[in-house]
Amino acid sequence: MARSKRSIDWGFPRWRGYEAGREAQSMRLCDRAGCDEPGVCPAPKSPNSPERWYFCQQHAGEYNRGWDYFAGLSAEEAAARASDEQRDNAGYRESVHYGWAGSGDGSRSRDEMNALDVLGLDPDVEFEAVKKAWRAKAKEVHPDVKPGDAQAAAEFHKLQLAYEVLRAAEDRRQWAGPQA
């Protein structure tokens, strides 16, 4: 009878102890002088260079805040690089139309999201809550309540437009019916 070549610790429970993997793990520290945090965020030392700094999250944020992508380029070279990148990324710009790049779950358009921001509501709110918030805010700044106040009239107009956008979107959803 042939002997099995499988070890005794191939599954669970493990029949051997866990002592084998108890060596100290080497950890790279942040490259910022005096920092003792782990350096887990690589950052380029210079543009188009394979060499990297390794910073902790706090120092990586500081490094990236001061990063200038166009450093060392003339105005013409910077404009050429910017136009090349816009040309190369044009496909991503098109995806915004389909709702992939917007916030929320993709079921609301950018106009609807802006209208919800005007009313101070979350993206996943029901239309009844939209009506309730619109009525409450419109009562505060209605021209009959504040006659002669141009700022209140402008705010009321903005609330009215936001409500119309959301009402039209709700009507479209009701006419379209449930999506399968």
Score class of each variant (00 low, 15 high):
135 R>K: 08
143 P>M: 08
117 D>Y: 01
55 F>W: 00
128 E>V: 09
88 D>V: 14
133 A>M: 14
106 G>P: 03
111 D>Q: 09
95 S>M: 14
109 S>K: 03
112 E>T: 06
107 S>W: 01
89 N>P: 00
56 C>D: 00
104 G>Y: 00
79 A>I: 11
101 A>N: 13
128 E>M: 06
96 V>Q: 11
63 Y>Q: 08
66 G>A: 02
142 H>S: 06
67 W>R: 03
103 S>I: 15
89 N>E: 10
83 S>A: 10
108 R>G: 05
138 A>F: 03
138 A>H: 11
85 E>W: 02
86 Q>K: 06
143 P>E: 09
137 K>A: 12
130 V>R: 14
84 D>F: 01
85 E>V: 09
138 A>M: 05
72 G>H: 02
64 N>D: 06
115 A>K: 04
85 E>T: 09
118 V>L: 09
109 S>D: 05
129 A>P: 01
101 A>G: 12
77 E>C: 04
88 D>Q: 15
57 Q>S: 04
87 R>H: 03
140 E>R: 07
56 C>Y: 00
90 A>K: 09
130 V>L: 15
55 F>S: 02
58 Q>H: 13
51 E>T: 05
97 H>E: 06
96 V>S: 10
85 E>A: 08
69 Y>I: 12
74 S>V: 11
115 A>G: 07
138 A>Q: 05
